[in-house]
């Protein structure tokens, strides 16, 4: 029973992490288009955010499928062409609404968690 509960928490955290990282990616793309490798590196600079860099790619694909980003190829001097990601207008509005809700959510959770000290 305890094991099941722990497993449930891990899954929940994993899902929350995926959701939050999606918006982090959108935020990165707001200022500038990036290619996949760049995005993974920027994300891994934030402590504990990304467990393994490979998992960023399915996430990027999801963002593309949901219409929040679009991709294009660009020649690169360093080797084969790179796939660049660009945020769409839908992505912009999704990000805006997330930022609003996230601040409230984060503050509320922190508030409750710190009450019983």
């Amino acid at each position: 029973m305890f094991y099941m509960v722990v497993g449930g928490t891990e899954k929940l955290l994993a899902q929350m992490r995926r959701g939050a990282i999606e918006y982090c990616v959108l935020s990165l793309l707001q200022s500038q288009d990036h290619y996949g490798f760049e995005i993974t590196r920027e994300l891994s600079e934030a402590d504990g955010l990304v467990t393994s860099e490979g998992t960023v790619y399915p996430l990027l694909t999801r963002l593309r499928n949901d219409g929040l980003v679009e991709t294009y190829w660009q020649e690169s001097t360093a080797g084969p062409p790179r796939r660049y990601y660009r945020i769409t207008t839908n992505g912009q509005s999704a990000l805006r609404s997330f930022i609003e809700q996230w601040a409230r959510f984060r503050d509320s959770v922190d508030d409750i968690l710190s009450r019983e000290k």
């Binding site: 996949g36 490798f37 790619y57 694909t61 360093a78 084969p80 790179r82 796939r83």
Partner: peptide, 19 residues
């Protein structure tokens, strides 16, 4: 069903990293 594309992206990632 998206295994193919995923491997391709990882291959590219590795190439970028090796550079």
């Amino acid at each position: 069903s998206s295994g193919h594309e995923f491997v391709f992206e990882i291959e590219q990632h590795i190439a970028e990293g090796r550079a």
